[in-house]
Design a protein around this nucleic acid. Structure first.
Lengths: 206, 206
DNA sequence: CCGTCGCGATGACATTTGTCATCGGGGCTG
DNA sequence: CAGCCCCGATGACAAATGTCATCGCGACGG
């Protein structure tokens, strides 16, 4: 704990340009100190262990381990470290997963740096912050109606593979695969599995 | 023309956080001056007309009109304004389209701010810059083997619509649609149209 | 202990999709 | 002008996919 009023921040984003720029901007705030930067999930974890930041600002999409995964790991490893997620593509399902992983902030990159700084302070203080638009979307979208297997098979179908290929990869009967995909498509009100994949992706259920 | 050695820069990116951070970072360079910012394609054009920047730094993905479209418009409207594209997802086809639109720089966001500043200077000086990795990918990927209609139909197929739906939207016979999609899939060495869509997307041909 | 639900499978059937051959028209080029 | 390629279409056939009914198994809750 740093009682001097300075908030020690870890910045993780695979885009060097954004990470550096963000670091520079946050450094302009007197009470924020960027103590570490990382370009991947694993690196973010290592940096967190080494520098013990007060707040970890994590990009959702990173190589190795995504922001949510890092948040989950940090919660158990460094419970004192607050985590928050920053992302370009704010999908309802992502928000839900992030909150379940213990993230206390969820901010789209369309926010301003001023807002980000404020939210870092709020999160450090123990509050939570979720982008209002995203929250509304998440509530209206609700939970995924898909079962675990349905989701898994839909994911395997995502790259356009044939039923036979999916069945092979999932070690299931082709008929079973068709049944599950059919059920998933019906639940998502999609006309076929490909449209179902799109629907699920849009909502972050995949 | 600004002979005082100061390069007037227009920054366009829909992500407020990144745009602001980038602006702050570039402002640290003595010879760079961010004279305008925009959050969408049309806004970028309007700002360019109003402020006549020396260099326009455009994000590839923006609402309204993407970076390539803005670059094309700027080339005819403000020939003295150099344009460059910055992007997260660098796909071969995008690079090609950007160069055809008159862009003189193509930089992935994994570059550092220092590099970006250098490239802005280079582009302003009349040089071109293309990320080496991306250039290699673009060369190895080559041009799209698809004809105009094939590309168009593949695009219509992208959201998982049925052949009948695609035929309706394209005002074509269903049989014709199947023929084109089949041809496109064959050219892309894909097993079906959905996999073909993925392949084309990966290469930026869509 | 019984109903419900998810998982996994099979069989049958209709529909959709992929593939191929073939046709005609138009435009470009050597 | 002949050859080539793209566009658009049709017909026929094979393969993949979607849909439905039905079965057995195990888990979980009232």
């Amino acid at each position: 704990m740093n009682d001097a009023g300075v908030i020690r921040v870890l910045l993780a984003d695979d885009e060097h340009l954004i990470r550096g720029a963000l670091a520079a901007l946050l450094s302009l705030e007197d009470d924020l100190l960027v103590v570490a930067e990382a370009a991947s999930g694993p690196e973010a974890l290592a940096m967190a262990r080494a520098h013990r930041p007060d707040v970890a600002v994590l990009d959702l999409q990173m190589p190795g381990r995504d922001g949510v995964g890092v948040a989950a790991a940090l919660r158990s490893e460094l419970p004192d470290c607050r985590t928050m997620i920053v992302t370009s593509h704010g999908k309802p399902g992502h928000l839900k997963r992030a909150l379940e992983a213990g993230a206390r902030g969820f901010v789209p990159k369309t926010a301003s740096a001023q807002q980000l700084a404020e939210i870092i302070r709020a999160v450090h203080g123990g509050s939570r912050y979720v982008d209002p638009d995203l929250a509304a979307d998440a509530i209206s979208a609700g939970d995924s109606p898909l079962t675990a297997r349905e989701t898994e098979l839909l994911d395997l179908a995502a790259d356009g593979a044939s039923v036979a290929e999916i069945a092979r990869r999932a070690a299931l009967s082709p008929g079973t695969v068709r049944n599950y995909l059919s059920a998933a498509a019906a639940k998502l009100h999609a006309e076929n599995r490909h449209a179902a994949v799109r629907r699920a992706r849009e909502r972050g259920w995949l």
